[in-house]
Design a protein around this nucleic acid. Structure first.
Lengths: 189, 189
DNA sequence: CGTCTATTTGAATGTACTCAAAAGCGGTGG
DNA sequence: CCACCGCTTTTGAGTACATTCAAATAGACG
């Protein structure tokens, strides 16, 4: 839990007693390998901050019927389907534990109350979103302007921790290529 | 300017006198076809809300040397390089007017003051970011799981206004394909 | 050790790209 | 009003990057 409180303090100023109030809205949760945070079709009720472990978000390609990775999330990241969480709509993807994961969660309803009680937290979440928007935009640029090989090298460079714990066929899926082709890319280095 | 104030009221509650305070932080600006909002390498000092017209954001592919469209923006959208604007770093792309554009702008410094004076605006901008994050994530899914043809049909369907004003080779660039290939796609319908 | 899953290798194929050239189209000036 | 210019779109031929399907290896785990 402290990892989250530290993250908050790194982004906004907050006196200790307010921080304790924030703590009161949070829940710790442990989920086992392969368990789901939520599934396609459910409304996502929690926003989850990762203390340790890794999650994968994926959807099923309606044409091929295969799993496709949307993103991975590791410690210090928030993971949710924001559209589902914020607008109370069924999620279009799944989030599942890659290994054992320790989380801090906040329920949708609690978040509304927290934002009401401590409006400063609006700023915290705005800054979080801002960071994600930059990184996802960077990913779009990468997808449009580079070959699979460059994307793989960039990913390996940027997220070595993920490469270590996640099987190669999931990395391939994240990069938008087949596992066979990723294998060939790695072979020619 | 009213289009923006209406947008704010559609997302958060705000008494008229506060809304007038917000107005005081804003500037109207008209830019001509092909003029730039900012260029690659500059720090982006304004966040701009579009009242009318269309903008394109693009970067130069370092390998091919060609322009690649990151996004288009039309009325009721905010346009900026958020990373540059928020973190005072040089922008990695350009934003240029596709036709004559009417904007409401807020300077980076003014925004800090506005957020201080009217913290409710944190919420407005958080909600804006939330919407963009959802739509950009949707775009990633589309890029990974569909062919160029499906992407074009989806785009044509979703943004008919943009199709009307933007030349085809820019649409191709946005979709991550060559103009020749887009031409062939359209031919086979 | 055997089973199940993940990775690698091979061959044929497809989607999209490159380069080149032709055709279309809109504006401007003679 | 037509001719020409510059720019966009289309068409053609050859090529490259990445996929599919199939089969062989390699690894992990009970």
């Amino acid at each position: 839990m402290d990892l989250l409180l530290k993250d908050i303090l790194s982004k906004i100023k907050m006196p200790p007693e307010e921080l304790e109030t924030v703590r009161g809205f949070l829940l710790e949760k442990r989920i086992k390998k392969n368990e789901f945070l939520f599934r396609n079709g459910e409304v996502c009720n929690y926003d989850s901050f990762i203390l340790s472990g890794a999650l994968k978000a994926y959807y099923i390609n309606p044409v091929s019927g295969k799993e496709e990775i949307l993103f991975f999330a590791i410690e210090s990241w928030w993971a949710t389907d924001l559209d589902s969480f914020a607008n109370r709509t069924p999620s279009i993807y799944n989030i599942q534990a890659v290994d054992e994961v320790l989380l801090v969660q906040i329920h949708h309803q609690s978040l509304q109350e927290l934002l009401q009680k401590i409006p400063k937290m609006e700023r915290y979440f705005r800054l979080i979103l801002q960071g994600y928007l930059s990184s996802i935009q960077r990913r779009i640029i990468l997808m449009n302007s580079t070959t699979a090989e460059e994307r793989y090298l960039d990913f390996a460079d940027r997220y070595p921790k993920i490469i270590q714990k996640v099987p190669q066929y999931l990395i391939a899926s994240y990069l938008g290529i087949t596992p066979e082709f990723l294998s060939r890319i790695r072979a020619r280095k």
